[in-house]
């Protein structure tokens, strides 16, 4: 107990490194699983693991989602997650958009599609670190997420309620 799981969807390896380091610096014990595009994220959440390469499985407590990613972008991911939610198949972890775009239309569209929050990546390294720390502390410590149902860890996220 005591370890949180964060799922980070981010295709830029440099941003990945900065975000991972920022999370590490918060001192909150976390396991961070990284996926590099939307379809990997959907697989992570809903596909039964093919092998044991994804140790532990489990439902993440927080999803950090980039908008601009190859194959399947953040908006498409939000659409899929919303469909899953509307079908009543699952109550998902909070999704925080963490993106380079500070476009008001993008923000509105993300909220409309069900993102819990939208944080434009600040441009400076120190500010990015601070923003990531605030996100992680707020969503993992202050906020109450949906209860984690670990009854069937083989199929994280797909549970009938």
């Amino acid at each position: 107990m005591g370890q949180h799981t964060i799922l980070l969807a981010e295709d830029d390896p440099d941003h990945q490194a900065l975000i991972l380091r920022a999370i590490e610096e918060t001192g909150i014990p976390c396991r961070i699983d990284v996926v590099e595009n939307g379809s990997e994220l959907i697989d992570y959440l809903f596909a039964p693991p093919q092998s044991d390469d994804r140790e532990g499985g489990g439902t993440p407590e927080l999803i950090l989602l980039d908008l601009g990613m190859p194959e399947m972008d953040g908006f498409q991911v939000l659409q899929v997650l919303r469909r899953v939610r509307d079908d009543g198949r699952s109550v998902l972890a909070p999704v925080v958009i963490l993106t380079a775009s500070d476009n008001a239309d993008h923000a509105r569209e993300a909220y409309r599609l069900g993102a819990n929050s939208y944080v434009p990546k600040p441009t400076g390294f120190a500010e990015l670190t601070e923003a990531v720390a605030r996100i992680v502390k707020y969503w993992l410590v202050t906020n109450h997420g949906p209860p984690a149902d670990r009854s069937d860890p083989q199929y994280p996220g797909v549970q009938s309620i």
Binding site: D102, E127, A131, K137, T142
Partner: peptide
């Protein structure tokens, strides 16, 4: 708790424009 709410939502977070 209220302070953390204010700092998160009023800080780095982008809120939808009220339109």
């Amino acid at each position: 708790s209220v302070a953390r709410i204010a700092q998160f939502w009023g800080g780095y977070c982008r809120l939808p424009k009220a339109t």
